[in-house]
């Protein structure tokens, strides 16, 4: 009973906190909108500094959209927490809110290292999680390219497999036919990627995905929109890394090689790296 009350209280607290975040982000969006309006008015009135005011208006408008996207994410989170059953522990802020904001069924976040490899992942559902696993195993895919080239990457139908051999057919087997991936960048540095699967046709040109990516970047970094839950709850694949440590000692080999062995085995058995890792850790699977 105590556990139930704790969960409910946690969910209610999280809803309140999310409303607060949403309200703050909304206020910041309004402030930026007012500044953009002022510069747009001045641009129309003053001929000599028109370029300057137009440029300032554009900067404030972009920041306004970024804050609006953050407000939408927290708003979705708050609504989800308000309706959350009392007897279930509240889930962390996740990609479900991102998917809802982007009006897409499935969304995946990958935080990456300097080598563009996944460090930690979050997903809205099983399909997006499997797609993340696929990129982790193959070392290629839309999110990997979005991070490498720091640009939006999209493909659908047969073009997916044409761009990333092996990835497209597996993605289709999972039930997704199209994908868009955008980088999460801060001052030109890519810290992660957001991928959406089977997005609505008008999403690519709407700008929403980029604004949500910006809002997620703000949430991941220390700033007024920081949301520690986002990175604290991201999955670092602990069991895969434990298994890699174990293999590297047993074989012996460098950790990187051990991780490659796990990925190769997962590919060969058409299963997740976690499944292989669990079997290694339990002693059921011996790789030498």
């Amino acid at each position: 009973m105590a556990a139930k009350q704790g969960s409910s209280g946690q969910a209610t607290g999280r809803a309140g906190s999310a409303w607060l975040h949403a309200a703050r982000a909304g206020r910041r969006a309004v402030q930026q909108g007012i500044l953009a309006d002022q510069h747009e008015r001045l641009a129309a009135l003053t001929a000599d500094r028109r370029t300057f005011h137009e440029s300032m208006a554009s900067i404030h408008r972009g920041t306004e959209r970024r804050h609006l996207a953050a407000a939408q994410l927290h708003d979705a989170r708050a609504r989800r927490m308000s309706d959350w059953p009392q007897d279930r522990a509240a889930p962390p802020l996740g990609l479900a809110e991102v998917a809802e904001t982007c009006e897409t069924p499935s969304a995946a976040l990958a935080l990456i290292g300097a080598d563009h490899r996944q460090l930690a992942v979050s997903s809205s559902d099983q399909l997006s999680r499997s797609a993340l696993d696929l990129e982790y195993i193959l070392g290629l895919g839309p999110a990997t390219d979005a991070a490498k080239w720091i640009c939006t990457v999209s493909a659908s139908g047969p073009a997916v497999d044409g761009l990333w051999p092996g990835y497209g057919s597996e993605l289709a087997a999972l039930g997704a036919l199209s994908v868009i991936a955008v980088p999460l960048t801060s001052e030109g540095i890519c810290i992660g990627t957001l991928a959406v699967f089977d997005p609505p046709p008008d999403l690519a040109g709407s700008g929403i995905l980029a604004w949500v990516a910006d809002a997620l970047t703000d949430g991941l970094q220390l700033g007024p929109d920081a949301n520690p839950e986002l990175y604290e709850t991201a999955d670092l694949r602990p069991v895969v890394n434990q298994a890699a440590g174990l293999l590297s000692e047993r074989i012996p080999c460098p950790i990187g090689d051990a991780l490659s062995l796990i990925r190769a085995r997962a590919y060969a058995e058409a299963t997740s790296p976690e499944t292989i890792a669990r079997r290694i850790v339990s002693g059921e699977l011996k790789i030498n």
Binding site: A234, L236, G245, I255
Partner: peptide, 24 residues
Amino acid sequence: LTSQLELALTSRIVIEQAKGVLAN
């Protein structure tokens, strides 16, 4: 900020890997 985030993540990853090394 970016290096802080990457360091925080890699630190947690390396701890898991070290657990595997010592466990074996």
